[in-house]
Simulated scan of single mutants.
Amino acid sequence: MASIKEFQVTFDCAEPERVARFWCEVLGYVVPPPPAGFASWDDFNRSQSPEDQDSWFACSDPTGVGPRLFFQRVPEGKVVKNRVHLDVRVGTGLVGEERLATLEAECARLVALGAVRVRLLRADGVNESCIVMQDVEGNEFCLD
């Protein structure tokens, strides 16, 4: 059986473009060019039926290494904890106070973008410290 070489991560959300642009800022991702024949994503959006307008948005890693992120509008709101979440790896290889300082600096940057800090999980001898956060629509993720 062949192994899968590529995948995308899909988010259910209320405002796909808003959430996508947040994650672009978090990860350094970019919005791809609009579909052929359209000068902008706004032009493409206006060409859609009213029920399809603003129904999805996507972003990608400009290096082509990370997965594509796809954001789709769903009618229901978020009511429980995510079963899957992203770990944003900003402290890889760092320990102790150096790791905490790096996590705190990135946390402050993301809070300014609209994220919410939930709690700091301190190193426990097995796991290093991380900060649990929420994106602009309340989806949990960790600064790790």
Rank of each mutant, 00 (worst) to 15 (best):
R18V: 13
R119G: 08
V80R: 15
A115K: 02
C24N: 05
R18N: 14
M1H: 14
L113H: 05
A105D: 15
D42Y: 01
E6T: 14
W23D: 04
S60D: 09
T102R: 12
E17K: 15
A105M: 05
V74G: 08
C107R: 04
S3T: 11
G91M: 02
V30Y: 09
F141A: 09
P62F: 03
I4D: 05
R119I: 11
V88F: 07
E104D: 12
R99H: 06
V90L: 06
C130I: 09
A123R: 01
S49K: 11
A115Q: 05
N127L: 14
Q8M: 14
S55G: 14
A101H: 09
Q48S: 12
V95Y: 09
V65Y: 14
E137F: 00
R73C: 02
G91P: 03
G77W: 03
L103Y: 03
R99V: 15
Q48Y: 07
D61T: 04
E104Q: 13
R99M: 04
V116M: 09
A58P: 07
F22N: 02
V80W: 10
F71M: 07
A108W: 07
N45P: 01
T92N: 11
L120W: 09
V88Q: 01
E140Q: 15
A39Y: 11
R46H: 12
N139W: 05
C59G: 04
L110Q: 08
N127W: 13
